[in-house]
């Protein structure tokens, strides 16, 4: 399953809830959730620990828009909107953790 997160990990439990509940699969960070994919943010270790179970992707246009295109954490794979579409088609279902 593809899990889509759109909230900053520092103001919302969405990412935490997804990491705690979902069994695995792909995670795509979009909109304000892209902050979770940046080096040095307080949640970096937690996301890194989840990388065994999940493959983590970030929507680069959203990260670049926020001035953090050069702070991408290691292990997170950058995608554009086309890559977003590919993730939704390669997974049988997707869930937006709004």
């Amino acid at each position: 399953m593809l899990h889509i997160i759109n909230k900053s990990p520092l103001t919302s439990v969405s990412l935490d809830s997804c990491l705690n509940t979902a069994t695995g699969g792909d995670i795509l960070l979009i909109e304000d959730a892209v902050y979770a994919a940046t080096r040095g943010n307080a949640g970096e270790a937690k996301l890194r620990n989840a990388m065994g179970r999940f493959k983590v992707h970030v929507l680069m246009p959203d990260l670049e828009a926020r001035g953090l295109g050069d702070r991408l954490m290691e292990g997170v794979s950058p995608v554009d909107y086309g890559g977003f579409v590919d993730l939704t088609s390669s997974n049988k279902t997707c869930q937006s953790w709004l």
Partner: peptide, 14 residues
């Protein structure tokens, strides 16, 4: 709960 989510065809959240 995570396992049950995996079994779904359509997941809607608002």
């Amino acid at each position: 709960m995570g396992k049950l989510m995996d079994e779904q065809d359509v997941v809607l959240s608002f």
